[in-house]
């Protein structure tokens, strides 16, 4: 049997890869995909904990995370299209006017 800690370590590695992608990449669409990776990592640990406690509430939480991810995909990609329309680029470093 696979122990619960193996699932949690997989989840944490996936989350770290997503976070590194958000920090390193400059293309806004790839940053968006890395956020999806982080959400999926959290989903894995939700389902693993739901098995650990013998309770389905964690799987309902995954359901709502998917709802939020779908809403985020629609709005985020619309924002990226608006960015491209205004500046002909989606590099995050080109949108630094509000930076302190």
């Amino acid at each position: 049997m696979v122990p619960i800690s193996a699932y949690l370590i997989l989840s944490f590695v996936l989350f770290s890869i997503g976070a590194i992608g958000v920090l390193v990449r400059k293309n806004a669409i790839v940053v968006f995909m890395c956020i999806e990776l982080m959400l999926n990592a959290v989903n894995i640990s939700f389902v693993a904990f739901s098995q650990l406690h013998g309770n389905l509430d964690g799987q309902i939480a995954v359901f709502f995370v998917m709802v939020v991810a779908a809403a985020e995909a629609a709005v985020g990609l619309a924002i990226i299209i608006a960015m491209f329309r205004n500046a002909e680029t989606t590099e995050t470093t080109d949108f630094g006017e509000l930076k302190f």
Binding site: M1, P3, I4, S5, L8, V47, S50, Q51, L52, H53, G54, N55, L56, Q59
Partner: peptide
Amino acid sequence: FPSEEFQYVHG
């Protein structure tokens, strides 16, 4: 998180 307390629920 030791492996003994793993329970099965079917989602």
